[in-house]
């Protein structure tokens, strides 16, 4: 017992020494640069413009408000990619499991291409090639309803910037490949007998899949899905590569303007903590709902 206690005291002591050295260095460096730790600058006018702001914003608004806009922009792109990625992932996952062999082969190519190349490269491809590459031509698959150009996507009066659209598609197609594997694993975890049972009851393949198999696969799917959603949230910070003003990009601008590195880093971490909390709580609620519906 006393041996254990000694070890722990030694660990604590070493950690305290390390921390005090680091904090001492930090305070010396900060006082040399004349920037003492403070957050009052957050209330000063930001004086930079934003390409995208979900709520009214002008350069005369405060840094705090600009950062909040960034947080909302992050939330916007995360939630919309989350929905699109789920659709892509579920579709590809089902095709990989039960589709015909040619479709399955295509899905396998998609998954290897997406998983074996960096996301950052994919995002740049979507932005510089897929959207900006359109130059002045406007692509209208359904006249009057949707039009795609280098300015972004117009969909029934809803206009999405090209930066947002590139990020949306890049993140969704990337995360979709991972969700597909989660869905496939979930479907394979349901026993073969269930398939035979619904077939013998006269369900069609698609009907049986969605009414019998997927509800039973959900408990196996949701934990994997949650971690993919959290990854998506983390990956959304690559927005800076395509010029979308998310929380990280705005933090970067703020640091360039004010030199408040430590404070901005603390803000970045806490806003991320909030986003993570939001997503995991949301998934917890969904998990509870699916578990409850299973009991009935």
């Amino acid at each position: 017992m006393s041996k254990k206690l000694t070890y722990q005291i030694v660990v604590l002591f070493l950690l305290a020494i390390l921390l005090s050295i680091l904090i001492n260095n930090l305070s010396i460096n900060l006082s040399r640069s004349g920037l003492q730790l403070s957050f009052s600058w957050l209330l000063r006018p930001a004086s930079f413009a934003l390409a995208e702001n979900p709520l009214p914003y002008s350069p005369s608004d405060t840094y705090a408000w600009a950062l909040f806009m960034g947080w909302l922009n992050s939330l916007k792109v995360i939630l919309s990619s989350l929905i699109l990625a789920t659709f892509i992932g579920v579709f590809i996952g089902i095709v990989r499991t039960v589709g015909n062999s040619v479709l399955g082969f295509l899905a396998a190519i998609y998954i290897t291409l997406i998983r074996q190349t960096p996301l950052l490269l994919q995002l740049m491809f979507w932005y510089f090639v897929a959207f900006l590459g359109l130059k002045d031509s406007i692509f209208m698959p359904i006249k009057g309803m949707i039009s795609i150009s280098n300015k972004g996507i117009e969909f029934l009066g809803l206009s999405l910037s090209s930066e947002f659209s590139a990020l949306l598609f890049g993140l969704s197609v990337f995360t979709g490949a991972y969700i597909a594997e989660v869905v496939r694993g979930g479907i394979l975890s349901v026993s073969r007998g269930q398939w035979e049972a619904f077939r013998s009851l006269g369900f069609s393949e698609i009907n049986g899949l969605f009414k019998i198999i997927i509800p039973q696969a959900l408990p196996a799917i949701i934990p994997g899905l949650t971690s993919q959603y959290l990854n998506l949230a983390k990956n959304s910070t690559l927005a800076i590569a395509v010029g979308y003003s998310d929380i990280y990009a705005i933090n970067d601008t703020v640091i360039n303007q004010t030199g408040r590195t430590i404070e901005s880093f603390i803000i970045l971490l806490s806003s991320f903590f909030l986003l993570n909390l939001l997503i995991s709580n949301l998934m917890e609620v969904i998990n509870k709902i699916t578990l409850n519906s299973k009991k009935i």
Binding site: A233, T261, F265, L268, F273
Partner: peptide, 14 residues
């Protein structure tokens, strides 16, 4: 829980 780019940023600037 933290995005990689934040850690790398920490490495470069902090």
């Amino acid at each position: 829980a933290v995005p990689l780019i934040a850690v790398l940023f920490f490495g470069q600037l902090l």
